[in-house]
Design a protein around this nucleic acid. Structure first.
Lengths: 395, 395
DNA sequence: TCTCCTTTGTTCCGGTCTCGAACTTAATCG
DNA sequence: CGATTAAGTTCGAGACCGGAACAAAGGAGA
C-alpha cells in the first residue's frame, strides 16, 4: 500500500523570515494587547525597526490599529497597538438539539445572538443557517466578516471537509461547507466541538496553559480534542480523539457507533439521565440533563447518586486518556461542570491513583456555556496567526 | 497554577531560511541517495545554485560526500551525493533481560556487535556499558562517533533525561546519561523503545509511511510510540503512549505499575506465557516466549490457544488506540511478529469492527529483531536533520 | 523657561540569503 | 566536428534582519 509519500516541505526564502516574524509580532500583539512596538520588540527579541516595519504592514492590512498613547515616568510616550476589532467571525455551535449563533471579534469581544432548534435534516439546517447568517451580516454592515466557524458534534473529514461521523446528530455524511460558502460568500471552517474547545483554550487563555492539553466535551456524547506541543492532533482524516468510542465495557450497552459499552454510553449526559431513570423507575419521563443537575442540587438523593455514578465513569475514562496522552491539563466542557464540585474530587482521586508520573491538572472550562461557540473564533482566525503549516519532519 | 507561559518563538533571520533549506536538502539526500544536485533541485523546488551552495557547505561539514558519476543519454554527467558513512552512532538496546550493542552509520549501513545480560542494578549496567562502548570505539578508530542512542523499556523524563518509569526493569529512577557522557565524551540520547521504533520507521522507510503512525512494542511489557503529523508525541515529561498501562479489566491482575488489569498484563509476552502455563498446568516451568512460539509452530494446541488469547487481547487494546489516535498505520514490533500470520487476522478483524472511518493498516515491523536497535540511529541523527525545533503555535 | 535625560520610534548601512538569468563544462548524436 | 542537452557555477537584483545613529516627545531639575 502506497501513501502520498511525504508533505513537500516548502522551501524558505527571505520572505519566509518575514512571514515567521510577522506571525510572531501578530501573536504578541494579540496576547499582550494593548502593547507598544517597543514592548513587542523587547518581548520577541526582534529589533525595534523590524517590529515597526512589520506593524506598518499589519496596519495597512487592517489586522492592527493604533490605539491610545501611554504614559511613562520618563521618555517618549508609547503608542499602543491592538487587534482591529472590526474584523470578526460568525460563530455557529451546531448541537443535536440547538444551534447557537454569535459574533466574535478579533480583539476578543464576543456576543451571542440567535439560537434555534436543530432541524432534523442537513438541508433544512443549511437553509436556516443561511437565512440567519444573512440577517446577522445585514444587522452590522460596518464590520468585516472574516469567515464562518462551525463546531459540530462529530468528526469532520480532513480531506473533504464533510461532516463524516456524527452519530449523535443522526445525519448522513454531509457537506455543510460548500452550500454555506456559496450562499454567503464567506469561507466556512468546520471542526469537531472538542477540537474547537481545545483551540479556544489556547487562544483565549494563552498564559495559563502549557502546550499539552486535552479538552473534553461532555454532552449528548463525549469528545476529546487533543493538543500536543501546541498542535492539534487530527489523526487519519480528522478522526483522532474519539475516546468516547473506546469500549470500556465489552458487555455494555449498544452505542450509536455500532460498538458496545463505549465510554460515551457510560459517562455522557444521556448516561447520567439513564442512571437516574433506572433508579427512579420513571421510564420515559421527559427530563433533561439540566433538570437532573437541578434536582441533585436541591437534595434529590437519586439524582445525586446518578451524577456520582456518571462522575465515576467519567473518571475511569479520564484515567485512560492520562495514560495514553499524558496531557498537562485536561479541560472539561459541558453543562455538568455546573456541578463541578461533585465531579472534580471523583476524577481527581482516580487520576491520582495512576502512579505514572505527576497527574495532570483537572479544570472546568471557564467560559461556561459559551466555550464551544467561542472556539469557533479561534477556528476562523487561527490560520492567519501561524506562519504557514508547521514544517513536518516526515522522512 | 502557573506554567511557563509559552515557548519563546525563535525569531527568523536570513540565516533561518538557510537552516530550513539546509535541512530540506540534507533530508532529500538522505531519502534519495545517491542523488545529484540537479535532482535535489528539481525535487525540492530550490534553485540549482542554492542547492550547490548548501551542498558545498554540507560537504565541508562532512555530512555529505560526492560519490560516483552518473550516466545520462545526453548532457553533462551528474555527480551523485551521499551521506557520509564515516559518521556513525553507537546503538544500545537496553532490555530487561539483555543489552544489545551495535553501530549504525549515517548512510544506512548497520552492524550488530556485542550483547550481554542486563545487570541487576544501574551502576553495574553503566560500568559494563562504558567498558564495551570504549572497546567498540577503539576497534574502529577511522570512524566519527556522533553520539550514543539508547532505547530503554520505560519512559524517559523530558526535563531531567532520567529513566523515570521502568517497571519491567525494576530499577529506581536512574540517570544513565550523565555518567555515560562523562565516561565516553559522547552525547547520549535516551528514548523509550516504542518511540525509537516509531522514529526508526519514519527514518528508514520514509516513503511508505504517512505522517500518522503508532509503533507498538510488545515484549515484557507493551509500549506505544505515537507520531502525529510527523512529530513524536511526548506528553507531559515524556509519558505519552502508556497505552500498556490503561486498565482494560478493573478486576484483573495487579500490574507492576500499581493498577489492575492493565493492557500489558493481558497482552504482553508475559501474559502469553501465563495463558500457556495456566492451561498446561506446569507451573514455574522455565520456558521463554520464543519457546512458546516454537511450540505453537510445531502444533502444540495449548500453546496455540495461549497465543490466540494473547492476540485477542492485543486486538482489543489496538482498537482503543485506533479510536483515540486514529493513526494511518500501526507498526507492531516484537518477537511475536514471528507468528504474525496468527496475530494479524485477529487484530485486523477487531479493527474493522470499529466503524469510525477507514481502519488503519496493520503491519509487522520489517527489521525484525533489530528494529529497536536501529531506532537509536534515528535518535542520534534526527536532531541534525531538522531545522531547529518546529514552531509551536501556542497561544 | 531652558537644558539634560530617557524612552520611543525611524532612517540608513552592511551582511546574508534566495532567485533568475547568463555562463561554463561535459557528454551524446548526427 | 558542430549542434544539442543537461549539470553545475557565477553574478547581479531584491528582500530581509541586525546594529548604530538619529529624530521625536515628553519629564525633571536648575
Amino acid at each position: 500500500m502506497k501513501h502520498v509519500s511525504f508533505v513537500q516541505p516548502a522551501v524558505a526564502s527571505s520572505e519566509t523570515a518575514r512571514q515567521i516574524n510577522r506571525s510572531i509580532v501578530l501573536n504578541f500583539i494579540r496576547k499582550q494587547q494593548p502593547v507598544s512596538r517597543a514592548e513587542v520588540s523587547r518581548l520577541s527579541g526582534l529589533q525595534r525597526n523590524t517590529v515597526s516595519l512589520i506593524v506598518e504592514q499589519l496596519i495597512a492590512e487592517q489586522w492592527v490599529v493604533e490605539g491610545a498613547v501611554g504614559r511613562l515616568p520618563r521618555g517618549r510616550r508609547p503608542t499602543f497597538l491592538e487587534l482591529d476589532g472590526r474584523r470578526c467571525a460568525i460563530c455557529v455551535d451546531l448541537r443535536p438539539t440547538r444551534v447557537q449563533l454569535g459574533v466574535g471579534h478579533l480583539n476578543g469581544a464576543f456576543a451571542l445572538s440567535d439560537q434555534f432548534t436543530t432541524p432534523d435534516n442537513p438541508d433544512r439546517a443549511t437553509a436556516e443557517l443561511v437565512k440567519r447568517i444573512r440577517a446577522l451580516i445585514r444587522s452590522h454592515p460596518e464590520l468585516t466578516y472574516e469567515g464562518i466557524g462551525i463546531t459540530v458534534p462529530g468528526r469532520v473529514d480532513l480531506q473533504t471537509q464533510r461532516l463524516a461521523f456524527a452519530p449523535n446528530l443522526g445525519w448522513p455524511p454531509t457537506d455543510l461547507k460548500t452550500p454555506l460558502e456559496r450562499a454567503t460568500g464567506l469561507t466556512v471552517e468546520l471542526e469537531n466541538a472538542a477540537n474547537a474547545c481545545a483551540l479556544a483554550e489556547l487562544w483565549f487563555h494563552p498564559s495559563d496553559h502549557p502546550p499539552d492539553i486535552i479538552a473534553l466535551t461532555v454532552s449528548e456524547g463525549i469528545g476529546a480534542g487533543i493538543v500536543s506541543q501546541g498542535q492539534l492532533i487530527t489523526g487519519r482524516s480528522g478522526m483522532a480523539g474519539e475516546f468516547g468510542h473506546v469500549s470500556l465495557d465489552p458487555a455494555g450497552l449498544q452505542c450509536h457507533c455500532g460498538n458496545r459499552g463505549c465510554w460515551e454510553t457510560l459517562a455522557s449526559e444521556r448516561a447520567g439521565l439513564r442512571y437516574y431513570l433506572q433508579s427512579a423507575r420513571r421510564a420515559s419521563v421527559n427530563i433533561e440533563f439540566s433538570d437532573l443537575l437541578q434536582m441533585a442540587e436541591s437534595g434529590d438523593v437519586i439524582a445525586q447518586r446518578a451524577l456520582n455514578r456518571m462522575a465515576l465513569e467519567l473518571a475511569r475514562g479520564t484515567r485512560m486518556m492520562v495514560a495514553a496522552i499524558a496531557p498537562q491539563v485536561i479541560v472539561f466542557v459541558g453543562e455538568f461542570t455546573a456541578a463541578w464540585s461533585r465531579f472534580r474530587p471523583v476524577i481527581e482521586a482516580e487520576i491520582q491513583s495512576q502512579s505514572v508520573g505527576a497527574p495532570p491538572s483537572i479544570v472546568a472550562g471557564r467560559d461556561g456555556g459559551t466555550a464551544r461557540v467561542r472556539g469557533t473564533v479561534a477556528l476562523v482566525f487561527h490560520k492567519h496567526f501561524s506562519a504557514g503549516p508547521p514544517t513536518r519532519y516526515c522522512r
